[in-house]
Simulated assay, not measured.
Amino acid sequence: MNMTEALAALTRGGFTPPPDSHDESPSDGAPLPRYQPSRDPAGAEELGRALARALRDAAADPDAAADTVLVWDDSDDLVLAHVVARELGATVMRALEIEGLVLPLGEHGPPGAVVLLADAFRTRAALRALHALAAREGGRVTAIAALIATPQLDAAAGLPVHTLLPERRPGAPR
C-alpha cells in the first residue's frame, strides 16, 4: 500500500490530516483526529494488512514478527489490532488505564515478542505506559506500529517504528 492509498483509506475512516503536522496539538489547536474503522471496514482491513506486512517484512524471522499485539482498550484501535494480529498469527492484549494504573485486560499467556499498536500515538506517556506493561507482563517490545506517524514516536528508544502515513512537520512540503 503506498502513501496515497493509505491516506485515501484513512480519509474514508474519518481521518483528515491537520494542515501543518500530525502533532498532538496542530497549529489550529485541534486535536489529532481519530481513525474510525467502522466507517470503512474494507479500508480497515487494507490498513491492518499493510501494517502487518511492514512488520513481517522488517522482522528477522518473518514467521515470528510478533506473538502479541498490545493496544489500548479502545474499540477503534481494537479493530486494527484484530486485523494485524490475525495477519501475523499473534494474539491481542488490551491495556486499560484506571487512575494512573495501567493494567492488562482479560486472560493471556506470556506475551513474548510484542508490537505496540495505535492509529496514532498522541502522547509519549501512552507509548511508554504500553512499553512498561509489556515488560511487566514478561514480554519484549520488538516494534511499534501506527497508521499515522507523530512526534511522540521519538520516544521509541531505538525500536523499529512502522507507519503508513509519515509525519509532516510544519513548513514541510505536502
Score class of each variant (00 low, 15 high):
residue 167 E to M: 14
residue 1 M to R: 08
residue 148 I to A: 07
residue 13 G to Y: 03
residue 13 G to E: 00
residue 95 A to S: 06
residue 40 D to N: 00
residue 98 I to C: 14
residue 115 V to P: 07
residue 169 R to V: 12
residue 43 G to M: 08
residue 132 A to C: 03
residue 13 G to S: 11
residue 126 A to R: 15
residue 23 D to T: 10
residue 4 T to P: 07
residue 153 L to G: 05
residue 117 L to M: 01
residue 153 L to F: 11
residue 11 T to I: 06
residue 65 A to M: 04
residue 65 A to L: 03
residue 25 S to W: 14
residue 14 G to P: 00
residue 152 Q to A: 10
residue 82 H to P: 12
residue 98 I to E: 14
residue 127 L to N: 02
residue 16 T to K: 15
residue 32 L to T: 05
residue 152 Q to C: 13
residue 129 A to T: 00
residue 76 D to C: 13
residue 75 S to C: 12
residue 54 A to C: 08
residue 127 L to S: 02
residue 104 P to L: 03
residue 131 H to F: 02
residue 110 P to A: 01
residue 120 A to K: 01
residue 96 L to E: 10
residue 38 S to R: 15
residue 163 T to A: 08
residue 42 A to T: 09
residue 144 I to F: 05
residue 16 T to R: 15
residue 1 M to P: 00
residue 18 P to F: 04
residue 48 G to A: 02
residue 128 R to D: 14
residue 7 L to T: 11
residue 94 R to Y: 11
residue 137 E to W: 01
residue 2 N to R: 09
residue 67 D to K: 08
residue 62 P to E: 03
residue 118 A to N: 08
residue 84 V to A: 06
residue 163 T to K: 04
residue 145 A to G: 03
residue 148 I to E: 04
residue 15 F to D: 01
residue 110 P to V: 06
residue 168 R to N: 12
residue 161 V to E: 12
residue 134 A to Q: 02
residue 9 A to P: 10
residue 157 A to D: 15
residue 34 R to H: 13
residue 123 T to P: 06
residue 87 E to M: 05
residue 28 D to Y: 09
residue 133 L to T: 03
residue 142 T to M: 01
residue 25 S to K: 15
residue 44 A to V: 01
residue 1 M to V: 06
residue 144 I to N: 13
residue 165 L to I: 07
residue 33 P to N: 01
residue 47 L to T: 03
residue 75 S to D: 13
residue 40 D to R: 01
residue 34 R to I: 12
residue 1 M to S: 09
residue 166 P to Y: 12
residue 121 F to G: 13
residue 33 P to T: 02
residue 19 P to I: 11
residue 9 A to K: 10
residue 169 R to P: 14
residue 153 L to N: 09
residue 61 D to V: 07
residue 170 P to V: 11
residue 166 P to M: 02
residue 32 L to I: 12
residue 100 G to S: 02
residue 97 E to W: 10
residue 68 T to E: 01
residue 27 S to T: 13
residue 41 P to E: 03
residue 30 A to M: 11
